[in-house]
């Protein structure tokens, strides 16, 4: 059956195959976008103040100069995080990275404590450079396009060769494959 389709409608088969690849690619993009919003997307301090969120969120900001206090239990620190002209106090409890210092831009993960008006963070992250990664992987697009053009051209050439009537034996020998 597959052979029949191939013989009769080689172009249709090509489009079907590439349609499938495109669909899978689209699915991957959607899944990764979902994952991005769940795990990576971060808020800024001004958003926290204007619309206090519930649950665990990620905040991206810069540690304000002169506010960092590393408290005696080695896993605790206080600082205020600024971004977009606003600042919020952060109480950090967790594994303290060695390179936590002032004027550093980072992401803190935790809950907003509305009653004390401070952010309780339990985890710290570097700024994710997802833009670079996405750009690097975008090269898959021209790669697919390049391959598609080549396959398309091969089929066109096969068809043209079948149509040209000059050397029949060679046409036959090509089709056997």
């Amino acid at each position: 059956m597959a052979r029949f389709i191939y013989e009769r409608h080689p172009m249709k088969r090509l489009y079907l195959r590439w349609g499938g690849i495109l669909a899978v690619g689209f699915l991957i993009v959607i899944l990764s976008a979902q994952r991005y919003y769940r795990d990576v997307y971060s808020l800024t301090p001004d958003l926290i103040l204007s619309r206090p969120p519930f649950g665990t969120v990620r905040i991206l900001g810069m540690v304000e100069a002169g506010t960092l206090v590393k408290e005696t239990p080695s896993n605790q620190a206080r600082f205020s995080l600024s971004g977009n002209g606003q600042r919020i106090p952060v109480l950090y409890q967790g594994n303290r990275p060695d390179d936590l210092r002032e004027l550093k831009t980072l992401v803190v993960i935790g809950q907003w404590d509305g009653s004390n008006r401070q952010f309780l963070a339990h985890e710290m992250d570097l700024i994710p450079n997802y833009g670079f990664i996405t750009t690097a992987y975008l090269i898959m697009l021209p790669m697919g396009l390049f391959l598609f053009m080549m396959e398309h051209r091969v089929l066109l050439l096969y068809n043209k060769i079948k149509e040209s009537k000059i050397y029949e034996p060679e046409v036959g020998s090509l089709d056997e494959g």
Partner: peptide
């Protein structure tokens, strides 16, 4: 694997181009 595949497709393409030119006389 993709490299092998692409080279295969492109080899066919170049071969067929030459064949077609030969056929056209």
């Amino acid at each position: 694997l993709i490299l092998t595949y692409m080279v295969g497709v492109r080899t066919q393409m170049l071969y067929l181009q030459q064949l077609l030119e030969a056929k056209k006389g």
